[in-house]
């Protein structure tokens, strides 16, 4: 106690010991509820293992073909070629398996973000009070430096890929919540009114009108969530998450710029490919292309071949 608090300098002493409370609170959580957090880990772990197994057990060549087909279907032939070139480059610089590991973490985080984010966004769109509550929370999740919650997460969940996914979710879920909320609120009021005037139930309004019309905006949120989870890869590697992030971290630690660059390049390539594919999903809806997806791209070609064969022997597909 060196100084006295005066009227002009009232903050000489800390009157609210927030730091102590938080410290005690987390210790209490760790002491009493660690088993609960370990249980939460389980489904994430299973999903992660599933993705990891699927991505790493398929031979790279087949994987490249698969990704190229997906890119072609969603975004057209040009992106398919770009995807093939990018993934071949990833393989050539020797980071294929790390890329697949990172991808499985990102996908797991994305699935969980959508699972929780879209319902929360819908809730926020329907309830002004919930929106007012969740906005500052989301601001906080996006601005608190990841290092602040890295330690408590480790204390509760331990280290490894699963806590890495959890840290990623904290950082990456806000955009999908925000943009789902925004998208639903932006549906024109007269369309909503017309839907109600024809006797729609709340669930019908949501599923048949609000969600389809909000879809481009929601897809922009999905894209942002995906990008943000990729940007967490290096930070998450500090708690022993494998993959590209770890290469970067180890490279920096050992001043091995080559290793860091190779890992970093892998992240960038992955980001570009995923960004273009998810953006295309939203854009196609915004351009209002009135051809259903299964009549475009490779699926459309397959259907056409099947259709022409069918025409020779029987009725064709309805147009």
């Amino acid at each position: 106690m060196s100084r006295e608090a005066t009227f002009l300098d009232p903050f000489a002493e800390t009157l609210i010991p927030l730091d102590g409370w938080v410290d005690q609170g987390i210790r209490w959580l760790v002491d009493n509820y660690r088993p609960l957090f370990q249980t939460i880990k389980w489904p994430i772990d299973q999903m992660l293992k599933g993705f990891d197994w699927a991505l790493n057990s398929v031979p790279p060549t087949l994987m490249i073909v698969f990704f190229a087909l997906v890119a072609w279907q969603i975004a057209g032939g040009r992106l398919a070629i770009g995807t093939i070139a990018s993934l071949i480059l990833v393989g050539l610089i020797g980071v294929w398996s790390q890329t697949m590991t990172t991808l499985s973490i990102v996908f797991t985080a994305l699935v969980i973000c959508l699972l929780f984010g879209i319902p929360l966004g819908i809730l926020a769109a329907r309830n002004d009070r919930f929106q007012a509550f969740i906005r500052p929370v989301l601001d906080g999740m996006q601005t608190i430096p990841a290092f602040v919650y890295l330690v408590p997460v480790v204390m509760l969940f331990g280290i490894g890929n699963v806590p890495g996914v959890i840290v990623t979710i904290v950082f990456a879920i806000p955009p999908v919540i925000r943009l789902t909320n925004l998208g639903i609120r932006q549906v024109p009021a007269d369309v909503v009114e017309a839907t109600l005037a024809f006797g729609a139930r709340p669930a019908q309004l949501l599923l048949k009108v609000q969600l389809p019309l909000a879809m481009p905006t929601i897809m922009a949120g999905v894209n942002q969530t995906l990008m943000m989870s990729l940007s967490m890869v290096v930070v998450a590697s500090m708690i022993a998450v494998g993959g590209l992030g770890q290469m970067v971290l180890r490279g920096i630690g050992r001043l091995d710029m080559g290793l860091a660059t190779v890992g970093g390049l892998g992240i960038v390539i992955l980001a570009i490919v995923l960004d273009r594919i998810t953006q295309a999903v939203g854009e196609e809806r915004r351009r209002r292309v009135h051809v259903p997806w299964f009549r475009q791209g490779p699926a459309g070609m397959v259907l056409k071949v099947l259709g022409s064969r069918e025409r020779r022997i029987g009725p064709s597909l309805p147009r």
Binding site: D190, V191, E193, A197, F198
Partner: peptide
């Protein structure tokens, strides 16, 4: 049934 000024088609 109702018809709207700005059509309000889906």
């Amino acid at each position: 049934a109702m018809v709207f000024q700005h059509m309000a088609l889906l």
